[in-house]
């Protein structure tokens, strides 16, 4: 067993930075569809924050902070996306047809609500789930 490296700076910075990254990734996620952003990029950025946590600490710490089963997360994301696409079947529309409309919401004002967001939530979860599963699989044996 090697001596534990002194990575105080990395750990301190990570605790702050990772939340900023996650917040920004959520911003990117909601920016999607009409402007650059979306589930894929948001998910990738969130998982980058998680990987940063993983680098600064280790797998055990990450698992205690985020006790998720990332495989389940992938499955749940896939299910949400597929069902959103399949929702169009109920209205006898072609698969993946989306619906959207503008609503007056309190505080937010005129807002566009789009079923593509549901699809993107699925994508977001799948991306985080898959990336973290890959990283964990590679990292576990060390």
């Amino acid at each position: 067993m090697k001596n534990k490296p002194n990575d105080l700076i990395l750990q301190t910075v990570t605790t702050m930075i990772s939340f900023i990254i996650i917040l920004f990734s959520i911003h990117l996620f909601f920016a999607g569809h009409y402007t650059p952003g979306g589930g894929f990029i948001g998910g990738l950025m969130t998982s980058a924050a998680l990987v940063l946590l993983l680098l600064a600490y280790d797998i055990k710490t990450l698992n205690t902070i985020l006790p998720f089963n990332f495989r389940m997360m992938t499955a749940a994301g896939l299910l949400i996306s597929v069902l959103t696409g399949a929702g169009a079947l109920l209205f006898n529309q072609p698969f993946l047809t989306h619906a959207y409309d503008y609503f007056e919401l309190p505080l937010l004002g005129k807002t566009s609500l789009h079923t593509a967001v549901l699809f993107d939530i699925g994508v977001y979860l799948v991306v985080i789930g898959v990336t973290m599963t890959i990283i964990q699989t590679i990292g576990e044996s060390e």
């Binding site: 894929f40 898959v130 890959i134 699989t137 590679i138 044996s141």
Partner: peptide, 15 residues
Amino acid sequence: VISFGVTAFFLVLAY
């Protein structure tokens, strides 16, 4: 995205 996934799988398989 596809090649990212496949490369990741390839790396794990190689290991």
